[in-house]
Each structure stands twice: as C-alpha cells, then as structure tokens.
Design a protein around this nucleic acid. Structure first.
Lengths: 241, 241
DNA sequence: CGTGCCAGGTGCCTT
DNA sequence: AAGGCACTTGGCACG
C-alpha cells in the first residue's frame, strides 16, 4: 500500500528544497510544476529559456522536463543519474548528472507553483502482443506460412554480420535466411537481410545458394525494388493472426 | 502569466471526473497520481495490471503513463488524440483515442490520490547544438576537413536511393558522396552510403567513378570492415570543434 | 497522407 | 563497457 502523496502549494524556495530533498531520500517520484530554465550538456548541448513546465524526478535516477505539448520530454536524463537539489540566489535548482558519458542537466526555477512526492508501488509488468517475437512464434508454429516445405533449423543463428532471425531450409534443401519485421519496412531492412545472406554464402562454402526472405506486413516501393535487384524475396505476414 | 495550478487531494470519483473534464476543457495539462490498470490496442496491444502511476494528459492530445522507473512511459498515446473522462462502476476511467491508425488507450483508476491541472505558457524553443546539421555547417565552412581540395557542390542532393547529405568533387574532379553521422556509426550507415554511391554511379553514366565518404566521430569494427569491402572511405570528425 | 531518415533516440541482450 | 537491434520507436521535412 502506498502512502498518500505529499504535496506543497506555492512553497518558498527553502520549503521546496527540503520537500524535494526528503522526497528523493524516501525514493519517491517527485513532480514539480513551475516556471524554469533548463540547460543540458553531454552528448549534445542545449539551452531552454523560461517557461511553465512539469519536471519529474524518479527514484531510479530518471529526470523528465515536459512542456504542454509533445509526447517526448523537451529535456531529460536517463535512469542511473544522481539527482541533487539546492537553492541558488534564492531559487530552486535541480541538477541531474551521470558519467559515461558525462552528462549534466540543470533546471533553474524562477517560480515553483506546486510540488508532489508520490511514493507508490508498481510490481506489475506490461504484457505486450504484436511484437516481432510474436511474428517469430507464429512462423515457428506454422512454417508453411513462409512457403510449403519450409523447415526452420535455428533462430538467432550467428553470422559474421549478426544474428539471423530464422535460419532454415526449403523443400529442395536450400538454405533460407528469414528476416522479420513487425511493421512495414523500408530499404534499411533489405540492407540487413542482404548482409546476412552475403555472410552465410561465404560461411557455407562457395556455390551453395542462400535464399533471403523478408517477412513483414508490407514493404515500400524502394525496398521492393532493392529486393528485386538483389534476388531476395518478400512474404507478407502480420505479427498476429 | 499562468494561473495557479488547481489541485485535488483524494477526490471522489465524481469530483475527479469534473476536475479532469474542466481541465481538459481549459486546455490545461492534467496530471493524475493513483492506482490504475491500463489497456492499449492499436499498432500493437497491451495490458497492465494495477499499480501506482503518474498519468499525464496534455492539451495537444498526448497521454503518458509513467511508473516509478524508466525514462519511457509504460503506456502512451501520441499528440492528436482525443481525451475523454468518465466514471464507470464508480471508478474514474480515461480514454485516449485516435484514428489512422486506430489506437485506443484506456486507464482505469481504482484509487485516485492526487490531481493537478496546470495551465501554463511556454513560448520558448529549445536551442540544441551538436547535431548532424552542425556537422554539415562545419564542413561547408571548412571543406578541407574532408580532404584538401574537396569542394561541396550540393546538400541534400536527390538520388533514386534518397537524398545525399553532401555531394561534391575532389581535387581531381571526381564525384564524392558524403554521408554524415553525429555519433559513432554501425553497419546501417555504410548501407546507406552504399545505396547513394550505387545510385549516383548509375545516374552519372557508366564508368565515372563515385567516391563514398562516411563522416562521423568514429566507426565500429563491423562497419569499418564493410567500408573496406566496398571501397568506401571514413573521415573521423566531431559535430562540434 | 506515405516514404525516408535523424535522434542527446531508449531499452534489451550478448560478448 | 561496447555492439547490435527492436521499438506502439517519435519527430521532421518532403513529395
């Protein structure tokens, strides 16, 4: 059972500092609503002038800065960071930092409207269907979906170019490389399949033909042309049936 | 200037429904802290059992469900969705829906601890440096960073395989295709460069040699091997100098 | 609207 | 720690 969330309306800077600090201490999720500037430096660098935003600090070291639009945070810090809260020149300042790579996020509040520290429990895992793995299972359960006589021999078979999704043989015994995609594919997937086929043709000694089959719900024109150029095949199939 | 955020502690279901409804009406960002289940169906499908989470509804139609860990929301809906709030069997239920593709997110609260409606303004844009575009500018300002005598002729030059980052000529007048990456690259980038070079060799009539140059801070072994196999070149360069 | 491609992509897993 | 790859990838620019 979770504690009631603790909240502060329009706190003073010092109140806020104590509140955030003890929230982080208690491993709570801390949410702050207020007007702030944001600076980031690390893999890239950014600055963001004053605006009203929602800032979330998670106990796992995640930091998120959300504006009123967009699915993505305007700034963030990944899990594993160390959060720090301080007052500077009478203002609340958050710092979230990590090494490897060195990255620092600084949030300076010029006004803090509302603060929440939420101490909840969440043991449930997401159950997701319609993934590439579902597509793999579907084919392994019914290999003829690829073509009559297809026989899977291995999944994640290693090649010098990477791991092949499904490796198998056709009715004539020829080697078949199958590359799976859960959604419509472009040229990049053809490149992937090409690398695997090339690598296996080298691996399996000269002359042995290796067929390459791309399995996805659909394919773009450009990708279809690339497939044709390279003598590769396409089988339309959805991840769930 | 923004209104003070409106908040509700431990509201009844009906209080909460009204609060959320009027928040959405006012184009506020709504944040809910409570125990909920989440169901999603659309490009894929998922279910998530009860847990204490932060749910954010943005006025642009974004929905986010955050647990206490991870940078990414456990469930979400992209901008452009229509939010809806209702009470069902005495519980608060949020629905966020869109068409093309048809997707529906349903959040059922079995306990709502705290609600915030934040009506802020944020006119500031993010200023980001260290991007691929910075790398392009850097090269255009000082083409010899590629090699002495290199002359850029066009950016985003169109080919049947897509747009080339920088197209130019070397000291001997031979065509050069430059592909830019702001960070360390793998085999995928080599595939891209290969497609451009192939397409241009066809475009520029037979025989004319086309050089391909990959520009990035660094390259993986596999990618370096691919580059060598295909007679392509690599120039190490950071997006900012 | 689909197609292509960058992103501070993130997350997961394997070496 | 680095590499490879899937992801409800998201976001943008262009045809």
């Amino acid at each position: 059972m979770s504690d009631r969330p603790r909240t502060r309306d329009d706190p003073t800077t010092e109140e806020a500092r104590t509140f955030v600090s003890s929230g982080l201490e208690r491993e709570a999720m801390v949410a702050l609503f207020g007007r702030c500037r944001v600076d980031y430096e690390g893999r890239a660098a950014s600055t963001l002038g004053p605006g009203d935003r929602l800032v979330v600090l998670k106990p796992d070291g995640t930091a998120l800065v959300h504006t009123d639009e967009g699915q993505q945070p305007v700034n963030w810090q990944p899990p594993g960071c160390t959060h720090d809260v301080a007052t500077e020149d009478g203002a609340l300042v958050l710092r979230s930092e990590r090494s490897t790579p060195r990255e620092l996020l600084v949030v300076r509040f010029e006004r803090l409207d509302h603060a929440v520290a939420y101490d909840g429990t969440d043991t449930n895992d997401l159950a997701l269907t319609g993934t590439e793995d579902d597509l793999r299972q579907r084919i392994l359960a019914e290999p003829s979906l690829i073509e009559p006589g297809f026989e899977p021999r291995a999944t994640e078979r290693d090649t010098p170019a990477g791991a092949v999704d499904i490796f198998g043989a056709d009715a004539e015994g020829a080697a078949v490389v199958v590359e799976l995609k859960r959604r419509r594919v472009g040229p990049d997937a053809v490149g992937q399949l090409t690398r695997y086929v090339d690598a296996l043709e080298r691996d399996l000694h000269a002359g042995r033909e290796v067929r390459g089959v791309l399995v996805a719900p659909s394919v773009t024109d450009r990708a279809r042309r690339l497939l044709a150029e390279r003598g590769l095949e396409f089988v339309p199939l959805e991840p769930t049936g």
